[in-house]
């Protein structure tokens, strides 16, 4: 019917003849079959197996430019800095010596670090769930092509384009005891307004809300891109089969959004695990230690307490944590897909 790939079809010297597996005529085959068709048509391993006989595989030299720059300016500094984690360098002195794993033991046994760890986990879960749910809702509402939706997309993305230091400054006033949220509370007769950033119990949720406000724009952009990659015919087929809006969301849209979700979840999770800017711009870890995170601790130890070695040990442990969590997430998303 449509031939969106026509551009490749005609391109010279490459001539492409799409095989039939790529676009099965899915109209009128039942909801479950629609789902299966969707997965079959795009699942990479299956696809690899199908075309494997004739395909050439790209060589490692294609990976070199990207890997090269990354190795020099990201991997090398990360490894080089890990060296200090095994020293007692204070960050200033000309001399230091090796202390083995002492810094790591000290990080893991510190009570404050445990507080920072639980705070970070709470923030991570809150941000990942909040930003993705909000981002999905907005992406679904704004996916239609219209001028109105373009403007709204831009507006929902704007908070993400705002630097954290500025977001923190504005939100400090929005949360302040005489600020607009307080007035809303009075207006709606909700009783005494919460202390927000000033209260040990509410400061962390208040910061999480700011982070969700910023990260949901990123989630929206990723999920919008994901929605564009969903085959319209699958919806058409499901609709012909009498599936309602919610059913189509549940059985067609969400499963097919999984790749976009994988990225969006990893991104928001990493943002949560490394949460730093917003905290510094609002509470700087306070009141008391209520909003200390792993990243604020790393920064304070390395650059404010002159415990550089200690801070770097913290950095190594955080690196392992973040890598572990994000790799696990990707694995889970991949596995679900493979199994389906």
């Amino acid at each position: 019917m449509r031939s969106p790939t026509a551009r490749q079809d005609e391109a010279k010297p490459v001539r492409v003849e799409p095989t039939s597996t790529g676009r099965s005529p899915v109209v009128g085959i039942g909801l479950r079959r629609v789902r299966d068709a969707a997965r079959t048509s795009v699942h990479p391993r299956r696809a690899l197996r199908n075309g494997g006989a004739t395909a050439q595989r790209p060589g490692f030299r294609l990976a070199l430019p990207g890997l090269g720059l990354y190795s020099v300016f990201v991997a090398y500094p990360a490894v080089a800095t890990a060296y200090y984690a095994f020293t007692n360098w204070n960050g200033l002195a000309q001399h230091w010596h090796f202390v083995g794993l002492k810094n790591f033991v000290s990080v893991l046994s510190s009570g404050l670090e445990r507080t920072a760890f639980t705070n970070t986990l709470e923030a991570t879960v809150g941000i990942a769930l909040g930003a993705n749910i909000l981002g999905l809702a907005i992406a679904l509402l704004l996916q239609k092509r219209s001028r109105f939706n373009y403007v709204l997309r831009l507006l929902w993305f704007l908070p993400a384009a705002l630097p954290s230091i500025v977001a923190g400054y504005i939100w400090t006033f929005i949360y302040s005891p005489s600020g607009p949220l307080d007035k809303v509370w009075v207006l709606l007769h909700l009783g005494a307004a919460p202390g927000f950033l000033g209260s040990p119990n509410e400061a962390l949720p208040s910061i999480i809300a700011i982070a969700i406000w910023q990260v949901s724009g990123y989630a929206m952009v990723l999920l919008l891109a994901g929605l564009q990659a969903i085959d319209e015919q699958l919806h058409e087929a499901a609709r012909v089969d009498g599936a309602g809006v919610l059913q189509r969301l549940r059985f067609v849209t969400l499963p097919l959004l999984r790749p976009a979700f994988a990225v969006s979840f990893v991104f928001s999770t990493v943002t949560g695990l490394l949460l730093f800017d917003v905290v510094v711009a609002t509470t700087n870890g306070g009141p008391g230690y209520a909003t200390e995170t792993l990243a604020t601790q790393l920064y304070k130890q390395s650059f404010e307490y002159n415990n550089f070695g200690w801070g770097m040990a913290m950095g190594v442990l955080m690196g392992i944590l973040v890598l572990g969590v994000s790799a696990a997430m990707l694995w889970i998303f991949n596995r679900k897909e493979a199994r389906a």
Binding site: P200, P287, G288
Partner: peptide
């Protein structure tokens, strides 16, 4: 003598203010 004194006192004073310490 310690750069930590200031930040720790800030945090502790906040804890006094909120009744946490």
């Amino acid at each position: 003598k310690s750069p930590q004194t200031k930040t720790v006192w800030i945090a502790e004073a906040e804890d006094i203010a909120t009744g946490t310490a």
